[in-house]
């Protein structure tokens, strides 16, 4: 059962459209697997929609905008322009499944990720990483595959790190995680995830991982690799 969910504030920002695509996609994927959060998102969306369109042009806001014009065009002109088009969105949008293979294991990507630009897969030992090129600067988004018996050396984060388990299971000091678990860590946390049968994760991090233990410091390239 999924035990780890996004916090309410994160869901609210998601609904408001204020999160970067990387995090918004993470929440969307989680919600597809989690009826509980799906429902919360539904309520929040309803509320924000109602609030957005309930406010009328009150005397205060009238100063900002009451003129029935948008840029150089009047409302009437825009209406004419829009309704002149006879295009109708096809009702059926059927999408092909997008597959990805790591070390001979094939996975179906969540629909949310189907149009994202995927970089080449890089590997170190049991770790494989394919970058999702979202162009969000210091926020990096990856598909991270850990082969059976693999683990990531103990590390902390300088920024935040989202790990969303897409398939398989892994465990750390906190316990076992299953597909759909949405694990948001920040610099206060340390963890050392290990997987018995292999797993695929969607990860979003905004700073390189920081390795904490002796010899592992030598492995710092892995930090940069995962990030």
């Amino acid at each position: 059962m999924i035990k780890h969910h996004p916090k309410l504030e994160l869901l609210q920002s998601f609904v408001d459209g204020d999160l970067p695509a990387s995090l918004a996609a993470g929440i969307a994927i989680h919600a597809d697997m989690c009826a509980f959060c799906q429902q919360k998102i539904g309520h929040l969306t309803e509320q924000v929609a109602e609030a957005s369109f309930e406010q009328d042009l009150s005397p205060k806001s009238a100063v900002i905008d009451i003129s029935p014009e948008i840029s150089a065009m009047s409302f009437d002109e825009i209406i004419d322009q829009i309704t002149a088009s006879n295009d109708v969105e096809p009702a059926a949008v059927v999408h092909e499944e997008r597959l990805i293979t790591f070390k001979g294991m094939e996975y179906t990507l969540p629909n949310t990720l189907r149009n994202m630009e995927l970089g080449k897969t890089a590997q170190i030992g049991k770790l494989s990483r394919a970058r999702l090129n979202l162009g969000e600067g210091e926020i990096h988004t990856n598909l991270l595959h850990i082969g059976p018996g693999g683990s990531i050396p103990e590390h902390t984060h300088k920024g935040f790190e989202l790990t969303l388990l897409l398939a398989g299971t892994f465990a750390d000091e906190q316990g076992e995680y299953v597909a759909g678990d949405f694990i948001m860590l920040d610099k206060r946390h340390q963890h050392q995830p290990a997987t018995e049968h292999g797993c695929l994760c969607y990860t979003v991090a905004n700073d390189a991982l920081h390795f904490t233990q002796g010899i592992n410091k030598l492995l710092n390239p892995i930090g940069a690799f995962i990030y």
Binding site: F53, Q81, S85
Partner: peptide
């Protein structure tokens, strides 16, 4: 313009049993 032109083109996809019109337009 984009939002309203989507409303024009996608109105047949709106299903009032699934939620309010305000939610859909939002």
């Amino acid at each position: 313009q984009d939002t309203m032109s989507n409303v024009w083109r996608k109105a047949h996809l709106f299903d009032d049993s699934k939620g309010a019109a305000t939610t859909w337009v939002y």
